[in-house]
Design a protein around this nucleic acid. Structure first.
Lengths: 209, 209
DNA sequence: TAGATTGTTAATCGATTAACAATC
DNA sequence: TAGATTGTTAATCGATTAACAATC
């Protein structure tokens, strides 16, 4: 239990969904929840849920009651690493970048979005109490603050150049919102967060896909 | 080939990545690409790439050359359904909603974002040439325009209520940006686009997860 | 032709489901 | 106790990888 290693990728990918559901139930004042209830709500199998939870929970489920919600939430958050803090920055302070900069929800996940950067001097200043710096300062600030993630929200045409600057600044992970394939050296991870793809996947045929 | 059915979910999920890469190479004026090149760029196996492409391409790859890029792009887009048009709306015209409303990239994916809706009269008006209507008009407009997807960008506390209105309006698919579990009736699909989860996944340990 | 690259069949690997004994 | 619900072992299913013949 709680053995962070040798847990399948599929299991890890389901954890955020469990967490969302559990927090909703917790909000209603429910103390215990059964694997069958979780399974029904999420549209998966109850055995699968039990197997997943067994891997991360520090306390086994109680027959006849199910799992203790508070404990389970804490265990999953710990498992997902929401307790180790990570500093992130936004690159590109346009509409999307500013919206994300103002977004409240990151702190719950152990992520500090400390600042945004933009090539245009007109954008420099502050949004929602957080600073927007000129692009030149990225390397400097990233190193000083130990930034581990960059959120890339520049227009498509500027994406590769901005990506190169992020790499030069020594930031090892990029969450890319530009609908462009990025060339990066080994050791740098890119995750594509293509809104249009998400939308398209949703349309494709409601049930599957 | 091009047999849209009985294609594994895993294969479908890789298609957007192929498409992104291929469009990048196409932009450089390259005519053919080998499965090995795609595999190396995306960090997957070449055999897997060939197997995936065999399922969607209308023309087999040529030994010694590889796959014809233009053709392959057209085939993947067709496979993913980017040619059937879908109408979408945004519910919640705050920072994130407005940024998405102004976002250019959807048209490439066969998606028209036709309008936004907001409960606050102050938000009603227009953003980037697109209308923002009061929430009351959602059902009306959704039915008239055959809206098939709603993009939910209200604050956490308003999410379930807004979700209920979307369901009542007869929209069968929701792309949810609020970090909340949504209760929906059978027949309605929800996809969770939790920015914080994406970020956290990226941090967890660069290589995997 | 020689060589690179393809598509396919068989083998491995991993994840899900089914069956059932254990437990509060 | 009886019954609901758990955790686990074995069986199925699906997807990936390995091996190799086909082809331009």
């Amino acid at each position: 239990m709680g053995n962070t290693e040798n847990v399948s990728k599929a299991t890890v990918s389901r954890m955020p969904a469990y967490l969302r559901y559990l927090k909703g139930e917790e909000g209603k004042g429910i103390g215990y929840v059964s694997s069958a209830a979780i399974a029904a709500a999420l549209g998966v199998s109850a055995v699968g849920v039990r197997k997943d939870l067994a891997l991360v929970s520090s306390l086994p489920g109680k027959p006849r009651f199910g799992f203790e919600i508070h404990r389970l939430i804490a265990d999953i958050e710990k498992f997902l690493g929401y307790h180790r803090w990570t500093n992130a920055v936004i690159v590109g302070a346009g509409g999307l970048g500013r919206a994300i900069l103002a977004y409240e929800g990151f702190e719950n996940y152990g992520i500090h979005v400390i600042a945004a950067f933009d090539a245009s001097p007109a954008k420099v200043g502050a949004v929602g109490g957080k600073p927007v710096y000129p692009m030149e300062r990225l390397g400097d600030i990233a190193k000083r603050s130990g930034v581990r993630v960059a959120i890339l929200t520049v227009p498509r045409s500027a994406a590769q150049a901005a990506c190169d600057e992020i790499v030069r600044a020594g930031i090892p992970a990029i969450l890319n919102f530009a609908p462009v394939y990025l060339h990066v050296p080994d050791g740098v991870t890119v995750r594509y967060e293509d809104l249009a793809v998400s939308l398209a996947a949703l349309c494709g045929g409601s049930a599957d896909r």
